[in-house]
């Protein structure tokens, strides 16, 4: 870790001013990812602005049935919140699948959005990485690619976004509220993260001086939603594949569907192709398979992650099946 200066911000305005004319500053929320990366010399900020004391910790019900979540709400608090547990089970489940209890107690919702990839080569200063060091190359291609992407990747970067929480947010049509000294704007979660293309170091639509202040969720299409995470051990491992799904059926037909995938793409992957196939289709395993196939048609794999395409297909089908087989589907 290199030496840096530390600023503690008592309010949002101070925080925003602290980074406004500081090109190499970082906001510190729970520190569960940033501090790790600083220790590994991957993140090397000159200034760390501690925002953990900002009053952005509310979870409020919105008119119309939605929810507004402050950016500094701790993951464990959000997962346990009655509004989230009853209306957005997929979100509560996704959070509880992530990290460990200790990390969830520290990690913030805003920070979770900006989590960085767990690509082994990104973490290793001795390896080429276009994300860490633009134009240095990608050592992951041809290397260990078990936790790499099969959708939305490029020849410059095949890293995945590691979040569980964001996968649920993508399925729930979340919007991100961001603020800077220039004002406030809202970005749909599905547009918040960027695909790597030829600039894998640009990971989100967030400008360097902008701070995530809140997430807003519209009313859910259904309270029947589920998060399924598949990984290499029972706990404390990143997803090989995860599926966030919400499904509403009527008369044996899918009337509304929300589907997002984790562990397979550089961003939380909203499965729009699959949703298109599902809508109006019979709520059967056959339709679920067709939906999965449609979403994964564009998938491309490396030697080490070919299995993810089949695993994603199976996990999508299994999750949708679970959502329709608990007796509540008609």
């Amino acid at each position: 870790m290199r030496t840096f200066s530390y600023v503690r911000a008592p309010d949002v305005e101070t925080a925003l001013r602290a980074v406004a004319d500081e090109p190499n500053a970082k906001f510190l929320g729970g520190g569960t990812n940033l501090v790790d990366l600083m220790r590994e010399n991957v993140e090397r900020p000159d200034v760390v602005v501690d925002i953990s004391r900002l009053p952005l910790t509310g979870v409020e019900e919105l008119p119309g049935g939605g929810v507004r979540i402050g950016a500094l709400v701790r993951n464990s608090a959000l997962a346990a919140h009655p509004l989230i547990r009853t209306r957005y089970p997929v979100l509560s489940q996704a959070i509880l699948c992530g990290a460990s209890a200790q990390l969830r107690n520290m990690a913030t919702v805003g920070g979770n959005l900006l989590q960085r990839t767990r690509c082994l080569y990104f973490y290793d200063g001795a390896s080429a990485c276009n994300k860490r060091e633009p134009a240095s190359g990608c050592a992951a291609i041809g290397g260990f690619t078990r936790n790499h992407g099969v959708l939305g990747v490029s020849e410059h970067c095949i890293a995945t976004h590691p979040s569980d929480l964001c996968v649920a947010l993508a399925a729930l049509d979340a919007e991100v509220e961001v603020e800077s000294t220039r004002g406030t704007r809202r970005i749909p979660l599905t547009g918040f993260h960027r695909l790597p293309g030829s600039t894998p170091h640009v990971e989100s639509a967030l400008e360097p001086d902008e701070l995530v202040t809140a997430i807003e969720l519209p009313a859910p299409i259904t309270e029947r939603s589920r998060y399924r995470k598949v990984r290499d051990r029972a706990s404390y491992a990143f997803a090989l594949v995860s599926v966030a799904a919400a499904l509403e059926t009527g008369g044996g037909t899918v009337t509304a569907a929300r589907l997002a995938l984790g562990g397979v793409a550089p961003k939380p992957w909203r499965a729009v192709e699959a949703e298109r196939v599902l809508l109006g289709a019979p709520a059967t395993e056959e339709s679920f398979r067709a939906a999965a196939d449609a979403e994964l048609a564009a998938a491309t794999a490396q030697d080490g992650n070919t299995f993810k395409i089949e695993l994603a297909r199976r996990t999508i089908v299994a999750t949708l099946r679970d959502l329709t087989s608990d007796g509540s589907a008609t």
């Binding site: 767990r118 082994l120 080569y121 290793d124 001795a126 390896s127 041809g142 290397g143 260990f144 290499d232 051990r233 029972a234 706990s235 404390y236 491992a237």
Partner: peptide, 24 residues
């Protein structure tokens, strides 16, 4: 994970070298 191209260990930590956790 010893990278066969370089001989470098690529998962030198408990995050990515998966020892069993209690739940296992």
């Amino acid at each position: 994970l010893v990278d066969p191209r370089t001989g470098r260990i690529m998962n030198p930590g408990l995050g990515e070298y998966h020892v069993p956790v209690h739940a296992d």
